[in-house]
Simulated assay, not measured.
Amino acid sequence: MIEDCGLRGYRIGGAEVSNKHCGFIVNSGNAKAKDILDLIQYIQNTVKMKFGVEMQTEVRIVGEG
């Protein structure tokens, strides 16, 4: 679904949707935690708008807020 939304290679700051596998976020060299969290949120929102599916992360995010 991430690929079908055209998000392969999409970047926020230093965080980027992997070009090899859209299910991964990679650090292009200078990603901050906020970049990664913002990218995750963008991906989730985009997939929900296009497919009506609420994606969940496979990792537990601690220290938010």
Rank of each mutant, 00 (worst) to 15 (best):
M1I: 02
M1E: 06
E3R: 06
E3W: 01
D4V: 00
D4L: 07
D4I: 00
D4Y: 02
C5Y: 02
L7M: 15
L7W: 05
L7E: 09
R8Y: 04
R8N: 13
R8I: 11
R8G: 03
R8F: 06
G9F: 01
G9A: 09
G9Q: 02
Y10T: 09
Y10W: 06
Y10R: 13
R11F: 06
I12H: 07
I12Q: 05
G13F: 08
G13C: 11
G13A: 09
G13D: 11
G14S: 09
A15D: 12
A15Q: 03
A15V: 02
A15N: 06
E16R: 12
S18I: 02
S18A: 13
S18G: 09
S18K: 06
S18D: 14
N19W: 06
N19M: 13
N19P: 01
N19Y: 07
N19C: 05
K20Y: 12
K20T: 10
H21D: 15
H21M: 03
C22P: 01
C22N: 06
G23M: 01
F24S: 11
F24W: 14
F24R: 03
F24P: 10
I25A: 14
I25S: 13
V26G: 12
V26Q: 13
N27P: 09
N27V: 01
N27M: 01
G29R: 00
N30H: 14
N30T: 04
N30E: 08
A31L: 03
A31I: 03
K32W: 03
K32N: 08
K32E: 15
A33W: 04
A33N: 10
A33T: 05
A33Q: 08
K34F: 04
D35E: 12
I36W: 07
L37N: 14
L37M: 14
L37F: 08
D38V: 00
D38I: 00
D38R: 04
L39W: 00
L39N: 01
L39M: 01
L39S: 01
I40W: 01
I40D: 04
I40N: 03
I40S: 07
Q41A: 15
Q41S: 15
Y42D: 04
Q44K: 15
Q44F: 03
Q44T: 05
Q44V: 05
N45Q: 13
T46G: 09
V47D: 11
V47G: 12
K48T: 01
M49V: 06
M49C: 04
M49E: 15
M49P: 00
K50Y: 05
K50T: 05
K50C: 04
F51G: 07
F51N: 04
F51M: 05
F51V: 04
G52N: 11
V53T: 12
V53L: 15
V53D: 08
V53Q: 14
V53A: 13
E54Q: 14
E54M: 10
E54G: 07
E54I: 11
E54F: 03
M55D: 01
Q56D: 12
Q56P: 00
Q56R: 13
T57F: 10
T57N: 08
E58V: 07
E58L: 07
E58Q: 13
R60P: 02
R60W: 04
I61P: 14
I61C: 11
I61L: 15
V62G: 06
V62K: 13
G63E: 09
G63D: 13
G63T: 03
E64G: 01
E64S: 09
E64D: 09
G65W: 06
G65F: 11
G65Q: 10
G65D: 14
